[in-house]
């Protein structure tokens, strides 16, 4: 087997004056894998992703990227590693005030010199790459539109286009569809899965929708109270497991919804109770 992309050993993250959000997480992510992370709100999924994309420094344990410990790497090394990791958030990824072309070209920022980056705001550089990426996500006509005039689903596709321009080895998508119309959510997940499959990229996704996770991903990692709760192929995930995953979660108002949805997906509730 090749060197894994990520290797986490006992990773924990404690915020100053705040509670523990990750505790003793050990995980191996092979190159080219597609993994969905599930769990209720506040379980620590987003924190885990921020550790993986080198935004947070773990407070305990080690994180290896392609076999190398990244605990003490310098700023220049950090930039080199970060440009190989692409990120999509739930929303607010993009700068609404900028035109779509600049948001897409921002995918080049890890490679471009600062001077070229600044000049590109005056005269967009390597526009063909943005044109091509927008064509792949079906937004060719929006190249010079102002980003905040686009709908939520279109903005998420612009974020995918930026990811295509960045051309990272790893894609981290943190709740990429939870602020998107449910009818469009599947399309965006499919876009991400296809993009990673055709180009052999590793894809890690946080998903609220257990349904989408089980249908599109060959490996499901459940996070509960900052720990790995289970790590299984989708066909091995049972209704009891999902029940336990979402039960006893915080008093968060979306948790019962997710719980109910999880049960209905697993067949424990009639599908008519789908929210």
């Amino acid at each position: 087997m090749n060197t894994p992309i990520f290797e986490l050993t006992g990773v924990g993250k404690v915020f100053a004056h705040r509670q523990t959000t990750l505790e003793n997480v050990s995980l191996v992510v092979g190159a080219g894998e597609q993994i969905a992370f599930i769990g209720s709100n506040g379980a620590g999924k987003t924190t885990l992703f921020r550790v993986l994309n080198l935004t947070f420094r773990p407070t305990s344990g080690t994180l290896r990227f392609e076999g190398a410990d990244v605990a003490n790497c310098r700023r220049t090394d950090l930039r080199r590693l970060r440009r190989r990791i692409g990120m999509i958030y739930q929303q607010q990824n993009l700068v609404g005030w900028l035109r779509v072309v600049h948001n897409v070209l921002a995918g080049h920022l890890g490679r471009w010199s600062t001077a070229k980056a600044l000049w590109s705001l005056v005269r967009p550089q390597e526009v063909e790459s943005a044109v091509e990426a927008l064509a792949r996500v079906g937004l060719s006509d929006k190249l010079y539109a102002r980003t905040d005039t686009l709908s939520g689903g279109q903005q998420q596709r612009v974020a995918v286009a930026r990811l295509l321009v960045q051309d990272p080895d790893v894609i981290l998508a943190d709740e990429p569809v939870s602020s998107v119309d449910p009818s469009l959510a599947e399309g965006i997940v499919r876009l991400l899965v296809d993009a990673s499959r055709t180009d052999g990229k590793t894809l890690l996704t946080n998903l609220h929708s257990v349904d989408l996770a089980l249908r599109f991903f060959p490996r499901i990692v459940a996070i509960r109270q900052g720990r790995v709760f289970f790590d299984l192929a989708p066909e091995k995930v049972t209704a009891e497991m999902l029940g336990m995953l979402y039960a006893g979660a915080s008093a968060d108002d979306t948790a019962p919804l997710a719980y109910e949805r999880a049960l209905s997906v697993a067949g424990a509730l009639p599908p008519s109770r789908h929210p």
Partner: peptide
């Protein structure tokens, strides 16, 4: 959020500021 995303993709600090913060 936009600035964080840009930094996570390897943008330099000045590029993060000009793309992610100044326009807003």
């Amino acid at each position: 959020r936009p600035a964080e995303t840009l930094q996570a993709s390897g943008a330099s600090r000045l590029a993060v500021v000009t793309y992610g913060m100044l326009p807003a």
